[in-house]
Design a protein around this nucleic acid. Structure first.
Length: 805
DNA sequence: AGCACGCCGACT
DNA sequence: GTCGGCGTGCTC
């Protein structure tokens, strides 16, 4: 039996990034297992923290006095061998702390909370007691909630031994239970009681008869007993008091999708789909970690390929993991999978309550669910024996986490595919350049679904030159051709989807006399006008203030709104087409839980003619009566300082175009733009992904961007601009020393938005092809950043950032 | 992170 | 003289 446990303590610092050794006390020897969470004493004093056992051994390199593990938080390990290895790999790849990676991999509920409590000892005088403990009871000891004077006083008492601080580590993970019933006496005894009361108390007799039919070991839910016998809870409680039965809690799962689904059978595949399924099936059969790119336009039946591939894996007794972007994880989508695989499906996403997430996670962990559907973090689901991993819409940027650990779910999926010797299927109509380039190099097998199922024609796409529209009709968000097209749909009772490219797109306030623009006091950006709350808001830090009526700079009254927000567009549109019923979908109208779904349902039931919204309407919704899609501002994203601007624009336009005319009615798309000649817009008009890929690869080659180069972004931030800049210059100097002449160093430069939440941001981007030293240089920077972190300087390392420049 | 130790200025 | 400010090192 192992004497020593290697524990990663829940203290995210560089010094505790390696496990610490703890003695395993005899009484815990039977309990402690690899991958379990424990609590351990840490530091001087009586501080207790949680940690995870990542190793068991008989010896240790540490030559001090070992402390013992204090308690075990789990009955079963929460991290298996695979996930422990994955955590190490993830920490190494993303320059994040090991414990941070583990926290990310586990459901929220398993994150242990530490609470401190302060209580009086017998030494405390009555006067002090009255001052600090007016209730006479121990009080919560939270540094952030107590004022300085009370804090100082309590700390002085603590030094004098008059009060005592105790630590508690609590895991909120609780299984939901319902009351269960077990017969507590033999059938004969129960029968005797039944005979005795049958005349007098018919309900009791009924219950006694029922108890005789139950197994003495498997509890039955009390609600079930009531339902079956028609006996009330009071009678059951009375029976418990008489010793006829005992109550025992039964663990139940919180099922987030309890609505019944109608089962579906596999659909007949067309040739391209069949070829794809056959290729994937072969990889599953041969247990190969071969990876695929399924490239198919909207409506080409990718989902059916996924579902039938999953079925193959399940038939072989293996499991499946299917990742979809958060925004596409709608009940319709989930029901489609549940309809095929029923109760074997578990769903993981942030819309579930923490309890629901935990229950789904346990179902997966116990092997009760063998198909997992979920967004980014579901890539860490504790599925064993994976037979296939699918990542739909693989180009979606939401697969990259924008906080530590800055992982890309695609990389994790590929890692797990290698671990399980199973195929990873990446699917998209507009694959990311990285993925498509890897397919060209033969790293992924490319499976093309060129045709739409049922041979629906692709919509006709018109590009409207807004420079011309501006000359002819003056300033308006709606060009003449688009308006005409909208009016035609209204006359025919067909539906319209209008999309605003929200990036860099909002209404701000500017003074017409002096040009003053209202800015956020904390961040380096203009405040956005919100008509619903009648306030000016900062989209970065949440700062909010009143709408000015007088210019704060020159006191002119000519302060007006500029730009276009969805709300303003909605008003303008309503004036242009007064009879239209318009639904607006944006961050403001979907903030409430379920609002998103409600708007889509209303639109699907024809309660509105026009759906106006931001990017979120481009993803995955499918309404047969939508025959017109309009993009009001196709190019606002093109102007952003981002090397993926063209790629994003092309993907968005292609995707939103796919929303038009999916049924028997032909679709039309209008793209309004000030850059009609830009290749991203021209090629989106032609819906020519291949040419876009070739053109954009050429641009990336010219600019030395990914996928031709790897990239790492290092950011330093501080409240004082000079401090941030100075730190960045030192980092750049250190980096340059370790790099070859082939690496390209961009910076240091201030970030595009140089100030956010009162902090200034400086960055450097390193582009490289092969730099064996880079990793150790970055590790040194991480180490070195530990000391100035005390003074408010934070340094972050982002491998393969989603945008830079 | 959070606690102790240690070194400096301003008070009973 | 001491109390308490915060800057620094360390936690198996």
């Amino acid at each position: 039996m192992a004497q020593i446990g290697q524990v990663l303590v829940d203290v995210p610092t560089m010094q505790t990034n390696d496990p610490y050794s703890y003695a395993i006390p005899a009484e815990l020897e039977q309990q402690v297992q690899l991958g379990m969470r424990v609590t351990v004493p840490f530091g001087r004093g009586h501080r207790v923290v949680s940690g995870v056992v990542v190793g068991l051994s008989d010896g240790t390199n540490f030559d001090g006095q070992l402390k013992p593990i204090a308690s075990v938080l789990d009955l079963a390990p929460v991290l298996n061998e695979e996930l422990r290895q994955l955590a190490d790999w993830l920490a190494d790849q993303t320059y994040a702390f090991r414990i941070t990676c583990i926290q990310t991999m586990l459901p929220n509920l398993l994150k242990a909370q530490t609470a401190r409590e302060i209580k009086p000892t017998t030494e405390l005088s009555p006067a002090e007691m009255a001052q600090y403990f007016p209730d006479g009871a121990p009080r919560e000891f939270d540094t952030s909630k107590l004022d300085d004077k009370t804090m100082a006083g309590l700390l002085r008492l603590q030094r004098a031994g008059k009060v005592e601080v105790t630590y508690q580590v609590t895991s909120k993970a609780t299984a939901k239970t319902v009351t269960g019933i077990l017969p507590a006496q033999s059938i004969d005894e129960l029968k005797a009681h039944q005979d005795a009361v049958v005349k007098r108390a018919p309900k009791q007799a009924k219950l006694l008869a029922y108890l005789q039919t139950l197994s003495p070991t498997t509890p039955v839910a009390q609600s079930r007993v009531s339902h079956d016998t028609g006996v009330s809870a009071a009678v059951i409680t009375a029976a418990e008091a008489k010793g006829w039965l005992v109550k025992q809690p039964i663990e139940v799962y919180r099922d987030p999708f309890q609505r019944p689904v109608t089962p579906t059978a596999p659909l007949t595949l067309n040739t391209a789909q069949q070829t794809a399924v056959t290729a994937i099936t072969q990889a599953i059969d041969e247990q190969q970690s071969q990876n695929f790119l399924v490239e198919g336009v909207t409506g080409s039946g990718k989902t059916e390929v996924y579902l039938q591939s999953i079925a193959v894996a399940l038939d072989q007794g293996r499991t499946a993991l299917m990742l979809v972007p958060e925004i596409a994880l709608t009940p319709q989508m989930v029901n489609r999978v549940k309809a095929r695989f029923g109760h074997r499906v578990a769903v993981l996403h942030s819309g579930l309550s923490k309890g629901e997430q935990y229950d789904e996670w346990r179902r997966i962990d116990r092997g009760e669910a063998t198909v997992v559907v979920g967004a980014r973090s579901a890539v860490f689901a504790p599925v064993k024996n994976l037979g296939i991993i699918i990542m739909d819409e693989e180009h979606e940027s939401s697969y990259k986490q924008d906080e530590n650990p800055r992982y890309h779910a695609r990389d994790v999926a590929l890692w797990r595919g290698r671990y399980h010797h199973c195929p990873v299927v990446l699917g998209s109509a507009t694959p990311s350049l990285e993925t498509r380039a890897r397919a060209s190099k033969g790293l992924y097998t490319r499976l093309l679904l060129a045709k739409r199922v049922n041979d629906h024609p692709l919509p006709t796409v018109h590009v409207v030159d807004m420079r011309e529209a501006l000359k002819q009709q003056g300033e308006s968000d709606f060009s003449e051709p688009l308006l005409t097209a909208i009016q035609a749909r209204l006359d025919r009772h067909e539906q319209v989807v209008l999309m605003l490219n929200r990036r860099g797109y909002s209404s701000f306030v500017m003074c017409r006399d002096c040009g003053f623009v209202l800015k956020c006091p904390n961040c380096d950006i203009s405040l956005t006008l919100h008509m619903d709350t009648h306030t000016m808001k900062c989209h970065y830090c949440g700062h909010e203030e009143a709408i000015p009526h007088v210019c704060p700079n020159c006191h002119s009254r000519k302060i007006r709104y500029y730009g276009t927000g969805t709300q303003k567009v909605e008003q303008a549109l309503q004036q242009l087409v007064p009879t239209a019923r318009i639904l607006r979908m944006d961050v403001d109208s979907t903030r409430r839980k379920g609002a998103h779904e409600k708007i889509l349902r209303q639109f699907g039931q024809h309660e509105a003619d026009i759906l106006l919204g931001t990017q979120m309407i481009a993803k995955g919704l499918d309404f047969p009566d939508v025959t017109l899609v309009g993009v009001l501002n196709a190019d606002t994203a093109l102007g952003l300082p981002d090397f993926r601007a063209s790629e994003r624009t092309f993907q968005l336009l292609t995707q939103v175009s796919g929303r038009a005319g999916r049924a028997d009615k032909p679709g039309e798309v209008y793209i309004q733009t000030f850059n009609p000649d830009h290749y991203a817009i021209e090629l989106a008009k032609d819906q020519d992904y291949e040419r876009f890929f070739v053109t954009e690869m050429h641009m990336r080659h010219q600019g030395n961007y990914p996928p031709y180069y790897f990239a790492v972004q290092v950011t330093a931030s501080h409240e004082d601009e000079a401090t941030a800049a100075k730190a960045m210059y030192q980092i750049v100097a250190a980096v340059k020393k370790g790099l070859s002449a082939n690496a390209i160093v961009l910076g240091p430069t201030p970030k595009a938005i140089a100030r956010v939440k009162r902090k200034y941001y400086y960055q450097v981007v390193i582009k490289y092809k092969h730099e064996p030293q880079l990793k150790s240089v970055l590790e040194q920077i991480r180490q070195a950043a530990q000391i100035p972190a005390r003074h408010g300087l934070s340094v972050t390392i982002d491998p393969e950032p989603m945008n830079f420049m």
